[in-house]
Simulated assay, not measured.
Amino acid sequence: MASQTKHLVEITPEQIQEFKNLAKEQEKTFLSEDAIVDTVEHVDVSHLYQRIEVKGVSINYVKVGTGEKPVLLMCGSVGSLASDFGPILQKFNLDKFTVVAWDYPGAGKSIPPERDFSSKESFLHGDIEFAKILMQKLGYPKFSILGWCGGGTEALMMAGKYPEVIESLISINSKAFFGHEDMAFYNLMSDISNWSELARSSMVKVYGEEYFFKCWMSLITLYKRIYDEEEGNLCTEFLSKIKCPTLLVHGQLDPVAPVRHVHFIKERIPHAKVHIMEKGKHNLHLRYPEEFLAIVEQFLLELS
């Protein structure tokens, strides 16, 4: 099914070639097996799953640790707590932190309902509203937030929209907008048969091919509309409103969110700290967990 699908995002051949040139500069072949993500060991965390009702939806979540500092983890837009954070959940310092990871409505094990990518309001704003209520129900009216990829975008938005509940912010390989190079990437990635086997199989394993394909194409369609109607703006209006301590972690070799994006965000959050991981690709937090967690935990503990 996926291999017969035409690209939904119309980008010129010149723009597509520009993205390929960017990938080549990183000495990686576009969409090669290791260009986007590194292979990481799967860790089964299903024994930690718990359920809680939020806004009438049964949400799957995990809570580990007994520390005084609560930290909420935000997955990628079509990810799950197991795929995006499972390998590092129990590697946090669980004496100092209480770590909460969860599956968005329609993602991971929080199905039904289906994932709603019909608008920014249902998707981005909807997710952070669920996150806020989830943490309140768990007894954490104020907490730190750590988001990766699309979850990093939502973490940025949440820190700007709800500053009263966010103690500190960590955003990993995230975007606040996307331009024509990013849309060239999404154009090529709109057909999942173009993905490497490593990247595709990790998502199909969670959702099955049909549901994952439906979610992914819905997200790409929304991105195209945001690009056409809002000049690609995801959350730029919230960046200047972020006042909490902020850490931006980014992979130098990430083709999904090229390093220019972290510099764009830093310019609009002057007090933010930036850490570039020179060998990091898109899933740097899973490939280099010890280095990543050392950076994150030092940042969080310095706030004491």
Rank of each mutant, 00 (worst) to 15 (best):
F117W: 06
S119Y: 14
S119I: 14
S119M: 10
K120S: 14
E121A: 14
S122L: 11
S122F: 06
F123R: 02
H125M: 12
H125P: 04
G126Y: 13
D127I: 13
E129C: 04
E129G: 09
A131W: 02
K132A: 12
I133W: 01
I133G: 00
L134V: 06
Q136S: 12
Q136C: 03
Q136I: 11
K137S: 04
L138C: 12
Y140V: 01
P141C: 09
P141Q: 07
P141V: 08
K142V: 11
F143G: 02
S144W: 00
I145K: 00
I145G: 06
L146A: 09
G147C: 15
W148K: 09
G150P: 02
G150K: 00
G150M: 12
G152L: 06
G152E: 10
E154L: 11
E154M: 15
E154D: 12
A155L: 01
A155N: 05
A155T: 10
M157V: 10
M157I: 11
M157N: 04
M158L: 10
G160Y: 10
G160R: 09
K161I: 04
K161T: 08
Y162S: 01
Y162H: 10
P163C: 10
P163F: 01
E164T: 08
E164M: 07
I166W: 07
E167W: 01
L169Q: 03
I170M: 08
I170Y: 01
K175N: 13
F177T: 04
F178K: 07
G179C: 03
H180Q: 13
H180W: 06
H180K: 14
E181F: 05
N187W: 11
L188R: 05
L188E: 05
M189G: 02
D191E: 12
D191H: 07
D191T: 15
I192F: 09
I192T: 15
I192P: 00
S193A: 13
S193P: 09
N194Q: 12
W195C: 09
W195E: 05
S196W: 04
S196E: 02
L198I: 02
A199Q: 08
R200D: 04
S201H: 10
S202K: 10
M203G: 00
M203S: 00
K205W: 09
K205I: 05
E210Q: 14
E210D: 15
Y211K: 15
F213R: 12
F213G: 04
K214A: 15
M217W: 11
M217A: 10
S218F: 05
L219K: 11
L219A: 15
I220F: 06
I220M: 13
I220P: 00
T221P: 01
L222H: 00
K224M: 03
R225P: 01
R225I: 04
R225Y: 10
R225F: 07
I226T: 07
I226M: 03
D228F: 02
D228N: 14
D228V: 11
E230A: 09
E230R: 05
N233V: 08
L234A: 04
